[in-house]
């Protein structure tokens, strides 16, 4: 059976979740591997939560927020960006491929972009294979 990754997407309520909705309204298809969790702001996503998910076997994590300058909370997204940089260092230390974590800016008007990111991410993770921490 072909490997079907499970990808977790944290989408901010104001831009990216709406962008994901727009992909639906516009019927732009993408593979069904993404599981979306709505958060108020990408800045609400605790790095520990991401590390926890990755170290327990989630194949990929996407954090999607508003474009810089568009953040509903001024600059929560920029704080996330810095945290993601730190997360990548931790992932390298743990031997988790850094491609498993992706940060994207998706506005509420960018349904097409959300679908593209979902497609690309599914493809990338299919290529690198299942998360080694996945319980068998």
């Amino acid at each position: 059976m072909e490997f079907e990754p499970v990808i977790l997407a944290f989408c901010c309520n104001w831009c990216s979740y709406a962008g994901a909705d727009l992909a639906g309204t516009a019927r732009i298809s993408y593979p069904p591997n993404i599981r979306i969790i709505r958060v108020m702001c990408s800045g609400m996503v605790h790095p520990a939560l991401v590390m926890d998910a990755l170290s327990k076997g989630i194949d990929g994590v996407l954090i999607a927020g508003c474009h810089p300058g568009d953040c509903h909370y001024t600059d929560g997204n920029l704080k996330t960006e810095r945290r993601v940089e730190a997360l990548r260092v931790m992932m390298e230390d743990l031997g988790i491929e850094i491609e498993r974590l992706r940060l994207e800016w998706v506005s509420s008007g960018e349904g097409e972009k959300f679908a593209r990111v979902a497609r690309e991410m599914t493809e990338t993770i299919k290529k690198i294979g299942p998360n080694p921490f996945k319980p068998r």
């Binding site: 727009l22 992909a23 639906g24 309204t25 019927r27 298809s29 069904p32 979306i36 679908a115």
Partner: peptide
């Protein structure tokens, strides 16, 4: 959300949806 983020975007693969 199983419409905008599921049935509407995965209409090509009902099983996966």
């Amino acid at each position: 959300n199983i419409r905008e983020q599921c049935s509407w975007v995965h209409s090509h693969e009902p099983e996966g949806a």
